[in-house]
Design a protein around this nucleic acid. Structure first.
Lengths: 310, 310
DNA sequence: CCGGATGATCGAAAGATTCGATGACGCCCC
DNA sequence: GGGGCGTCATCGAATCTTTCGATCATCCGG
C-alpha cells in the first residue's frame, strides 16, 4: 500500500495552487524551490496522476484533476490542523482570540457586562466583537471569520450548532397617553388595529414582531408609504415617545434602560407566544466547541444576578 | 512551528482507540508494538497533551481529550484518504464497485436496461444494486454504504448532491369499464370523488399521489378502514383491474408494460402538476462525483431511444 | 512470590526530507 | 540569432524521522 500524501506535500500543493509559482510557493512554505518542486513531483508519483500541465510554456497550469486534488487537499489539511487545534484548545482552554458576532438587538444590552465578566473570569482570552445583522454574522460564522455568534432564535442556522441560553419576552411599548396604556397587560388582539414601528429589513426582531402581529388575523403589514421603519431600537423608542406608533421591544432592552425617562409605558403582551430565545451558535466542527459550552453560563442578561459561586 | 500529526500517527491512534490494546493495534497497523507505542508517545509529545490515562493498571484508557482527538483524527485520516481516492478515481474512471441504490417504483423499469448498458459502456465497472424505500437508500447513502442513489424528487435529500435526469409524468389508471374511461384526458377535479389505491407508507410515490389528489380541494385521505394500500405497483394495477379503485402510475411503469393485457385504461391527468422528477443523488464529498455526472446520460427510461453516437 | 502479559525504552539500521548547486528549457530583447 | 533571465527539474550530501528487535518495568492472577 502506497503511503498517504503527507501534510507537507499537501501544503506545497496548496501554496502552489494559490500562488501559481514554484519559487514564491516555496518561499511561502519556508523551503527552497527545489524542495517544493521535489515535493510536488513526489506527490504526482505517489498518486500516479498528473497534477500540472508542464508542456504549456513554463507557466504553472493545473490539470482539472490537479485542481480537484488541490481542493481535497485543502480540506484534508484543514482536518489535520483541526486535530492540532483541538489539542491546543484543550491544553489551554479559554485562551487566545475569540471572535464573537452579535446582532444589534442584543449587543448593546449584553456585551458590556459580558466583556468585563469574561475578562475577569478568563484573563487569557482576547475578545473581538462584530455587531451585524443575523444573516451577516451567520455568514461570517460559517466562513470561519467568526468563532461564536450570539443571536436570537428561531433563525435559519443551518450548518451550525446552537445552544439556547434564555427566553427573552417581547414587551409592548406605547406612548404614555395612549388609551391602551391604562391596561396592565395587553392582549395581542388589541394590537391588530395599531400602527407598529418596525426595524429595517434584515433585523430578525422585525420579522419576529411581524410574526407576533400576524398571529392576530386582523393585522396586515402596513402599506409601504405608511410604514415606519427605523434602524435602531433607540430610534424606535423615540418614535413611540413621539406618538408615532407602538413597538415590541425585547425585555432585555427594556431592562437595560432603553426607555430612559421618555413618556412611554411598557406592558406585557398576552394571548400569544411573544418571545425570542437568545442563543449561541458555532461551527459544529469548531475545535473549541467544548470551550463554548463552558462559556455559555457566563452569558446572561444584565438583570439576572450571578448564581452564588460554589 | 511544531509539525502537524502524521497520517501514520493518526492511524496508530485510531487503531488503538478501536482495539484498546497496543499489541493488537500494532498488528492491525502492520508494525511492531514498540513502533506503535513510540508513535503514540510522539503524538502526545507533539500535541503536548495526555491522550491516555496510564495510571489505571495497564489497561488502555483514553482521556476525554484523547477520545476527542481520536474522533478528529478519524475525520482527518478520512480526508487524507479522500485525496488519494480522488486520484485513484481519476486515474481509472468508471471502474471498481459502484453500489447503487434505487427505489421500488423506479428499479424494475430502469435497472434492466441500465445494468446492461453500463456493462457495455464501462466494462470495468462492477455494479451492486440495492432496492429499498427512499428513506432507507438515502440513509445508506449518507452512511457511505451506497455510492449513488436513483430516486424520485422532490424528496428530502439533505446532505447530498442531486442531479435531475428526466420528468416522469403521472398517469391515471382506471378500470376499462369505468365511466371516466371514455375521456381522452382526465382533469384532476374528476378524481376528487374517486377511491385511490395507494402504496404503503414509505413509498414516495404514495406521498406524491396524495399531493396530487390534495391539489383538488374536495379530496381527502380515505378512512383507514376504507383504505386500499398495497406494497407494489404490480399489485396496484391488479387491484385497479379488479375495479377496486383508481391509481396514479408513473409513465415509466406504464411504458415498461406493467399493464400487461389487463382490462384497464391509462389516461393523462390534466389540471395540475402531476409528475415526479427522476434524479441521481450522491454524497457531495464523494471522490467519484465527477464519474457520477458522466454516468448520468446513460440512465434513461427504456422508452427513450439512445441519441446517435457522435 | 512467580510467570505471563502488557506497555515503555533503547540503540542501530533504513528511509524520507531538505538544502545548495547545477542543469534544461523557453522567452525576451538587443 | 544569441546571450541573459526567469523558471522548474535533478542531483548528491547532510540531517532528521521512523522502524525494528531486544530489553526493561510493572501489573495481575494464581
Amino acid at each position: 500500500m502506497t503511503p498517504l500524501p503527507s501534510a507537507q506535500q499537501l501544503r506545497y500543493l496548496i501554496a502552489l495552487a494559490d500562488l501559481r509559482h514554484f519559487g514564491r510557493a516555496a518561499q511561502a512554505c519556508a523551503v527552497t524551490q527545489s524542495t517544493l518542486s521535489a515535493g510536488i513531483l513526489a506527490l504526482e508519483r505517489q498518486l500516479d496522476i498528473q497534477l500540472l500541465d508542464r508542456k504549456v510554456g513554463k507557466r504553472v497550469v493545473f490539470t482539472p484533476i490537479g485542481d480537484e486534488v488541490a481542493a481535497r487537499a485543502r480540506h484534508a489539511l484543514d482536518a489535520l490542523q483541526t486535530v492540532q487545534a483541538v489539542a491546543d484548545a484543550s491544553r489551554a482552554p479559554m485562551t487566545g482570540l475569540l471572535r464573537i458576532g452579535v446582532i444589534p438587538t442584543i449587543g448593546p444590552f449584553v456585551l458590556p457586562g459580558l466583556v468585563s465578566r469574561l475578562h475577569a473570569q478568563f484573563p487569557h482570552i482576547r475578545l473581538s466583537v462584530n455587531e451585524d445583522l443575523t444573516g451577516n454574522v451567520m455568514d461570517k460564522l460559517v466562513l470561519g471569520r467568526l468563532d461564536l455568534v450570539l443571536l436570537a432564535m428561531p433563525c435559519a442556522c443551518e450548518g451550525t450548532e446552537t445552544l439556547p441560553l434564555w427566553r427573552d419576552d417581547f414587551m409592548l411599548v406605547l406612548p404614555a397617553r395612549h388609551p391602551l396604556a391604562a391596561l396592565e397587560a395587553i392582549s395581542v388582539e388589541r394590537i391588530g388595529t395599531e400602527r407598529m414601528i418596525l426595524l429595517e429589513d434584515g433585523h430578525c426582531l422585525r420579522d419576529q414582531t411581524l410574526a407576533v402581529c400576524r398571529q392576530e388575523r386582523g393585522w396586515s403589514t402596513p402599506d409601504s408609504e405608511e410604514e415606519f421603519v427605523v434602524t435602531s431600537l433607540y430610534t424606535l423608542v423615540d418614535m413611540v415617545a413621539d406618538g408615532l406608533g407602538l413597538a415590541l421591544l425585547p425585555r432585555l432592552a427594556v431592562e437595560s434602560g432603553i426607555l430612559r425617562d421618555l413618556p412611554v409605558v411598557v406592558r406585557p403582551v398576552t394571548g400569544c407566544q411573544a418571545w425570542r430565545t437568545i442563543g449561541l451558535a458555532w461551527r459544529p466542527r469548531s475545535p473549541r466547541a467544548a470551550d463554548f459550552r463552558l462559556l455559555a453560563p457566563h452569558i446572561r442578561p444584565p438583570s439576572v444576578t450571578a448564581p452564588p459561586a460554589d
